[in-house]
């Protein structure tokens, strides 16, 4: 029997999905506040363009490609879950997790290169923002991948298929955050 909290729908949205929208809403304030602060400092300090020139556009673009592709597999997993095909949904979620791992590997390589070049979180305010924003985003990628593995485990038994959509919404939000981080940290020189 499912808990009543999962089945009530007075809000017009199933409770689980409504909860995810609340998570996304709170995340907008967290990332929005961080990025708004970055934009203020960036506009107030034109010399930051010189620091931003040291970030690697191609690695950033590759990671954007990886996240957009993983978003595609997440929404295809949702489509499979709606069709009642839990096994296919689980496979697509595993593929999405693979995207998360690829993203983190590229990010790890990038950070290693930058730290070896002497650009650390304490170098100056630009690099503090860079590591904080990208690091917070990477933590969200890790959390999403772990939750996705748990959801995939139940989905492949054709159980709790609605969760596939819920983790998908979160994952797409993580993708959207990166869509804004990419031009801010990599492109605007």
């Amino acid at each position: 029997m499912r808990p009543i909290a999962n089945t009530r729908s007075e809000a017009g949205i199933p409770t689980g999905r409504l909860a995810v929208w609340w998570v996304v809403a709170s995340e907008i304030v967290i990332f929005g506040g961080l990025l708004a602060s970055y934009v203020m400092y960036r506009l107030g300090n034109p010399e930051w363009a010189g620091y931003a020139a040291h970030t690697n556009v191609w690695l950033g673009a590759t990671n954007t490609f990886v996240l957009l592709t993983s978003s595609l597999s997440a929404v295809l997993a949702h489509q499979a879950a709606v069709a009642g095909d839990g096994k296919k949904a689980a496979k697509l979620l595993y593929f999405t997790c693979l995207g998360a791992v690829a993203f983190l590997c590229i990010k790890g390589f990038e950070w290693t290169t930058e730290i070896q070049a002497g650009y650390t979180i304490t170098s100056n305010t630009f690099w503090s923002f860079y590591y904080t924003a990208a690091g917070l985003h990477a933590l969200h990628v890790i959390a999403g991948a772990i939750i996705m593995l748990i959801v995939a485990e139940t989905a492949k038994r054709n159980e709790e298929l609605h969760r596939v959509e819920l983790i998908g919404i979160y994952w797409h939000f993580v993708d959207i955050v990166w869509i804004f981080l990419f031009p801010l940290l990599y492109i605007a020189k």
């Binding site: 809403a25 929005g32 506040g33 602060s37 203020m40 506009l43």
Partner: peptide
């Protein structure tokens, strides 16, 4: 709900930006 949160971000920006940018 989401737009309200975005509005809070813009409000924060508008309130703090002059102090940070000038």
């Amino acid at each position: 709900l989401l737009l309200t949160m975005l509005m809070f971000v813009f409000l924060f920006f508008a309130a703090v930006a002059p102090d940070v940018m000038k």
